[in-house]
Design a protein around this nucleic acid. Structure first.
Lengths: 204, 204
DNA sequence: CAGGTAAGCGTACGGCGTATGCTCACCAGC
DNA sequence: GCTGGTGAGCATACGCCGTACGCTTACCTG
């Protein structure tokens, strides 16, 4: 009977994401999202209970872009896990400003659960039993989450490695050297290099 | 000549940490910290340029508590890295509310650099050359950072595993089973279990 | 065409970070 | 022992924020 809703939740998420992509996470507010939708600030509360719920919608949309279908089963399981990790990283990195949100709200996003289920399937096929599988999944989660954040935070502090390279060599000899060689390692190699450490540790 | 300062930066950090421990990160504001110090809100700006700098002081204090002296060299290098990771985790977890701050400001904290230098020393003694060392250090950082956050976020969502255990078993069979067995694995075992995966992967 | 229902808006409140200019406690020099 | 400069600390104010609350009004059903 009443007036029909003029927006979908996905449009809300899209508008919020547009604000984040344009002005960063600090630019996200109920008011800016409402303005993006040519709507009054309070109108948003007909769709979400509070700001946190809006953030959840954003995360749903970001994580919803990751393909959770199992990679072809004829490739080695390590490679399949790498594929899954890569898909997650690619989707998240497409919206760097939203990274802190994905960390906080990942639990409640259905897409995150689908990703986990697929990864667990790959691990099970690799013959990893349930207790080791729990540890492996959490470790993969922890690594991917942490790596994405470090990658992004390092970037925003304006060549974070440059700061480290300027350290007193007598007190931080290894760190200074490491920072120098770190320049030659790209973020992709770094990510998959670290991931492969876990996978090798997993493979007895 | 002028009036001497009545506070030290460490006292500021301590007051902010007290607020965080008592009221959580959301309770931290220039006003609440000033109140904690029986001072006017603007008085804080004689000590720090802005809120971000105050947060940096907090992180300095939290991370300053980790012992960066190399563990005894007569133990296996894997065990020594585990010791270092455990020290970092213990220090951070002592102030759960400040975890998001440690992630953001870790770069600028001197204590974090000392930790990295010590870990690099252990890796070097293990015969890991510089390119692999860069990858290993970043992977350890990523894992420890991510694991601490997941550990803490899981806790605040009121038994996050309980939510997962209630999933439809037909669509998420492995996840549901995993959540059930996860109950039997404590956070300490989970943390060191994942860490050992990386260390095993590092050891050829 | 009339009525009810809910969509959307306007206003307002308390809190935030912080720019700006004041007061006045302190100490060096006479 | 007084005086004057210096900067510590404070009071006020501005423009944001999230959101509680009550009104208007467009829409669909009968």
């Amino acid at each position: 009977m009443p007036r029909p809703r003029s927006l979908t939740l996905d449009q809300l998420a899209l508008a919020a994401l547009a604000v984040i992509d344009r002005d960063g996470l600090a630019g996200l507010s109920m008011r800016t999202v409402a303005k993006e939708l040519a709507m009054s600030p309070m109108g948003l509360y007909r769709y979400v209970a509070d700001r946190e719920e809006l953030e959840g919608l954003v995360v749903d949309r970001v994580l919803g872009a990751v393909d959770a279908t199992p990679p072809p089963a004829d490739t080695p399981w390590q490679e399949r896990v790498e594929t899954m990790a890569g898909r997650l990283r690619d989707a998240v990195i497409r919206h760097p400003g939203a990274i802190p949100l994905t960390v906080v709200h990942r639990h409640h996003a259905a897409a995150g659960l689908r990703w986990s289920e697929t990864v667990l399937g790959i691990l099970a096929e690799a013959g990893i039993d349930d207790v080791r599988r729990v540890v492996a999944l959490r470790a993969l989660h922890a690594y991917v989450t942490g790596a994405i954040q470090l990658e992004h935070l390092g970037a925003l502090s304006g060549d974070g490695t440059a700061v480290i390279a300027a350290l007193p060599k007598d007190r931080f000899p290894l760190l200074a050297e490491t920072a120098r060689t770190a320049g030659g390692v790209g973020p992709d190699e770094e990510f998959s290099g670290g991931l492969r450490l876990i996978l090798r540790g997993l493979a007895d």
